[in-house]
Computed example of a mutant assay.
Amino acid sequence: MTATSREVVEQVLRASREMDTDTFVSLIAPDGYVEWPYQLPGLPGRLEGREQIREFMTTQAKGLVRFDEYRDTVIHETTDPEVVIVEYTVHGTVIPTGAPLLQTIIAVLRIRDGLVVSYRDYLNPLVLADILAGRGTTP
């Protein structure tokens, strides 16, 4: 039996928080994508396909932040059974500086046949940019 869209989102969040690249990538459709409509300069705005996502997660993402926990997670199921919106707050550490990270996320995922076909991650890139530039910590 194929997992529901909500169940897939819960699995994606767990794999993301645990930085479990293999599980995360296995939940993405072969032609699926992850997109950050607001991204830091020098980082991609969109990753397409499992291999590009895996490459980014293993070479860039793992050295940038460590996620300790996700709090205040709310999963919104929509009238479209493929679309799920999730809100959560990330608590973690910015690895290059050791500074704490507090980031509110809203993500919109489209799930089809138990796999993520699109993942739009609406985070505020200025939070991480300010920490990396030494201009302070998160709010």
Rank of each mutant, 00 (worst) to 15 (best):
E18D: 15
S16I: 03
I106M: 13
M1W: 08
L126V: 13
R17T: 15
L115M: 11
R66I: 01
H91Y: 12
F56C: 03
T73W: 00
L13I: 07
G114Y: 01
R14Q: 11
V90Q: 11
T21C: 11
P41T: 14
G63T: 02
M19D: 10
S118K: 07
D113Y: 03
V65R: 02
D22L: 05
G63K: 09
L115Q: 13
R110L: 03
T79D: 14
P44T: 01
L101D: 03
S16H: 13
L101I: 09
F56S: 00
D22M: 06
S5F: 02
F67L: 14
P96H: 09
G98M: 07
V116I: 08
L64F: 10
T78W: 02
I75P: 00
N124Q: 05
P100K: 09
T89K: 12
E48R: 14
V90K: 02
T58Y: 00
L115T: 08
T93M: 04
D68S: 12
R54F: 02
V94C: 02
I131W: 01
D121F: 05
Y38F: 12
H91T: 08
P139T: 08
A107Y: 01
E82Q: 12
E48Y: 02
I105V: 15
A15C: 07
R110N: 04
E18Y: 03
D22H: 03
L40I: 14
E77Y: 01
A129M: 14
I105Q: 12
T104A: 14
T89D: 07
V12E: 02
I85W: 00
T58P: 02
R135K: 15
P125F: 06
V108N: 06
Y122W: 10
M57A: 10
D20S: 09
G42W: 04
L109Y: 12
L128Q: 09
H76R: 13
A15D: 05
T73S: 02
S5L: 01
A107C: 07
E82G: 09
T59M: 07
Q60I: 13
I53M: 04
R14H: 12
G49H: 05
Y119T: 00
S16W: 07
T138Q: 09
R135S: 08
Q52H: 13
D121A: 06
V108P: 08
L128H: 10
T23Y: 02
V84N: 02
E69H: 06
V83S: 03
Y33M: 13
E7W: 11
S16A: 14
F67C: 07
G92C: 11
P37G: 08
V9R: 00
L109I: 14
E82Y: 01
A107E: 14
A3W: 05
I75M: 06
E55Y: 09
L123Q: 14
Q52W: 05
T23Q: 14
D20T: 08
V34I: 14
P30Y: 06
V83P: 00
